[in-house]
Design a binder for these strands. Structure first.
Length: 646
RNA sequence: CGCGGGGUGGAGCAGCCAGGUAGCUCGUCGGGCUCAUAACCCGAAGGUCGCAAGUCCGAAUCUUGCCCCCGCAACCA
């Protein structure tokens, strides 16, 4: 027997700055479906996922929470793993970039690059704002000053290591052009070529000195390795790569069959990562698939509103497989998809409960009712059987071909087409009518056998997507998953006894009555948790003299226009005898027309500031509520322009 | 002209790369059936495929311009 062909697939490793929401969870489920399917196809699959745990952001978050970075990421990584496990995903390895062997290898790789001249020591040059400790490029500066604090910046240099990207660019362009399958979907390929490769690659800064929470450069301890050079290498360190002596596992598995990643990090995976591999003298992964995002419908997701959707909340309401179904089926191939609680409930009812659950239920029920639960093929065929059998037997090939293109959503649709066809078959054969005629008893048995067989084929095909459900269905018929190769042959089921009372696979839910209140409770809890997290320092007290320093006067808006491509309105305000040009970020809440004629309160002794090329000579006072809605503050009665506030 | 994605019957999407009867799921309406989780099956209504121009025998699909929406970034004195 031939040795199984290896297939190594990875997800991006999750950044441990926060709890992964449903959009992040989607990726692991998608990878799991692919991994399970590949195993079914007979590949020797190795499926790796994990967490990316270094970087400045994590250092800061840990500090805020008052724990060490290590404690912080331990907690976060455990949370990620818990959710991955909850989703019933079958990863073979969960790597963490803080694993000792990973860190050691990254140091070796960095050193090798340095020794072979791919990495050189240089200086990062730019405009530096000392109070903010940040570098800015010329184009980022606002009015020649720091975009964060508005203070002066000065040219500065910081020592850093750089990777010579240009050296490998031609080879990479060549590779991408000769391997059209390398970047998926293809639309992403052009984006990478046109925006980054063809204009010429900049050398990449691959070390940092501004924070400590990273892998130290072992021959120059004040530097830590840039997070991407650290993180990307997980794909090889996780399977035992070693600069000097790669493991047997590495030799077997590399190059990877598939890196599954979000579309936002395609650049790192199709440009930097291949180039690092070239520098290591290693072959490139066969395929990088940048999947789209699962976006939350309606309003923007934010913790303060409590409307972030997390996998575990969804699972608590709908069950694991319903959530897997939703993310796998609802996610388009190259557009972003939408998720709302209501949509999940709708899919649960319309497809899982009505089409699949009810089909299984009615089939088992009829087998019990008419034959005491014994399914037997009596081979009494009818014309209508032919089309049905051909359809069912043809589904496997369709699923395989969709999966070969990574069109998981389409693959799962094909399986459901089988279940829909089976429901139709029940109508075509009307078993309840056959049951009334004793002479049709064998025909009735055959119909129920055909139904059972089609459900069994469907359940086996469903296994990679909805593993628990597939197993339950099969167990109702006393069967186990059938080999993929046997799924295009109709009639392999030998018959047998079905369960007396099948468990309801997916219960219908009433969104308004059952789900909506629970969703409200989840959101409320989330909002409270968020508020509790916020530092609650009392506002520092000021003196009356401090207040007196602020000059606030009543002004009248005499002209106003929107500033293009911004949230700004540009008002001309008459304050007593003078007029001022003022900018305010309220374009989303007021139109220029309604601003004109309004009496507003203006802080008049702020230094002028330029935004979008326009000078602002004051600030109009507004109130902002917790949803970010902004409302002008105005004198309660009409008062003369120029009046002072005291 | 910061980067990117999108505008297809009421909703969510496919079709666009390789032009040629506009498809799927839900919803609505009508009918059928009663084994089943008020589920299932059949039929119907409903779309000038964002707007305009161009290429072509022919454009949802290719080209150009414009409008609008959504992310990210920036900005909100």
């Amino acid at each position: 027997m031939a040795e199984k062909e290896p297939y190594y697939l990875t997800t991006a490793i999750a950044y441990t700055s926060g709890k992964p929401h449903i959009g992040n969870t989607y990726e692991i489920v998608l990878a799991d479906a692919i991994a399970r399917f590949k195993r079914m196809q007979g590949y020797d699959v190795f499926f790796q996922t994990g967490t990316d745990e270094h970087g400045q952001k994590i250092e800061e978050k840990a500090k805020q929470s008052g724990v060490t970075p290590k404690q912080f990421v331990d907690e976060r990584a455990a949370e990620v793993k818990r959710i991955w496990d909850l989703m019933n995903t079958t990863y073979d390895k969960f790597i963490r970039t803080t694993d000792a062997d990973h860190e050691a290898q990254v140091q070796k790789i960095f050193k090798k690059f340095y020794e072979q001249g791919d990495i050189y020591k240089g200086a990062y040059e730019g405009m530096y704002c000392t109070p903010c400790e940040s570098f800015w490029t010329e184009s980022q500066l606002v009015d020649g000053k720091c975009p964060d604090c508005g203070r002066e910046v000065k040219p500065a240099k910081e020592e850093a290591y750089f990777f010579k990207m240009g050296k490998y660019a031609d080879r990479l362009i060549e590779h991408i052009n000769t391997h059209p399958e390398f970047i998926q979907p293809v639309s992403r390929k052009n984006e990478m070529m046109n925006n980054f490769l063809l204009p010429g690659l900049q050398d990449l800064c691959v070390s940092r000195t501004s924070f400590k929470w990273g892998i130290p450069v072992d021959f120059d301890e004040k530097h830590v390795v840039y997070v991407w050079l650290d993180a990307l290498n997980n794909y090889i360190t996780g399977i035992g790569f070693d600069v000097d002596n790669p493991s047997e596992q590495y030799k077997k598995l590399w190059p990877a069959g598939l890196h599954l990643i979000g579309k936002d990090i395609i650049r790192f995976h199709t440009i930097y990562w291949p180039i690092f591999l070239m520098a290591l003298g290693q072959p490139l992964p066969k395929q990088v698939f940048g999947h789209p995002w699962l976006l939350q419908g309606g309003e923007k997701m934010s913790k303060s509103k409590g409307n972030v959707i997390y996998a575990d909340d969804l699972v608590s309401l709908f069950g694991v497989d319903a959530v897997r179904y939703f993310v796998l089926h609802e996610m388009p191939f190259d557009n972003d998809g939408t998720i709302t609680w209501e949509l999940v409930a709708e899919r649960n009812n319309a497809e899982l409960a009505n089409v699949l659950g009810n089909l299984v239920n009615r089939t088992v029920a009829m087998s019990n009712k008419y034959f005491g639960g014994v399914v037997e093929n009596k081979n009494v065929s009818d014309e209508v059987d032919e089309d049905f059998k051909a359809f069912v037997a043809g589904v496997k090939d369709k699923v395989v071909s969709k999966m070969d293109e990574l069109r998981v959503a389409d693959a799962i649709s094909e399986v459901f087409a089988l279940f829909r066809r089976s429901n139709k078959y029940i109508d075509e054969t009307a078993p309840w009518a056959l049951a009334k005629d004793e002479a049709q008893r064998d025909r009735l048995a055959t119909v129920l056998y055909n139904l059972a067989e089609s459900i069994l084929i469907g359940a086996s095909l469903l296994k990679p997507f909805l593993p628990e459900t597939a197993d339950k269905i099969l167990s109702f018929f006393g069967e186990t998953v059938r080999a993929l190769d046997d799924l295009s042959t109709f009639g392999l089921y030998r018959g047998g006894k079905v369960v007396e009372k099948p468990e309801i696979l997916f219960a219908r839910v009433d969104y308004a009555k059952e789900i909506a209140p629970k969703v409200a409770a989840i959101q409320e809890a989330q909002r409270k948790a968020y508020e509790a997290e916020q530092p609650k320092e009392p506002d520092p007290k000021i003196t009356i003299d401090d207040f007196a320093k602020i000059k606030i006067k009543v002004g009248e808006v005499i002209a106003c226009e929107a500033v293009k491509k911004s949230k700004l309105l540009h008002e001309t305000v008459k304050i007593g005898g003078e007029t001022r040009s003022i900018l305010s970020g309220i374009a989303a809440y007021y139109t220029p027309e309604e601003m004109v004629g309004k009496k507003v309160l203006v802080v008049t002794n702020l230094p002028p500031r330029t935004m979008k090329g326009i000078v602002s000579e004051g600030m109009i006072l507004c109130a902002e509520d917790k949803d970010g809605r902004v409302v002008l503050v105005s004198p309660e009665q009409d008062v003369e322009s120029g009046s002072e506030i005291s």
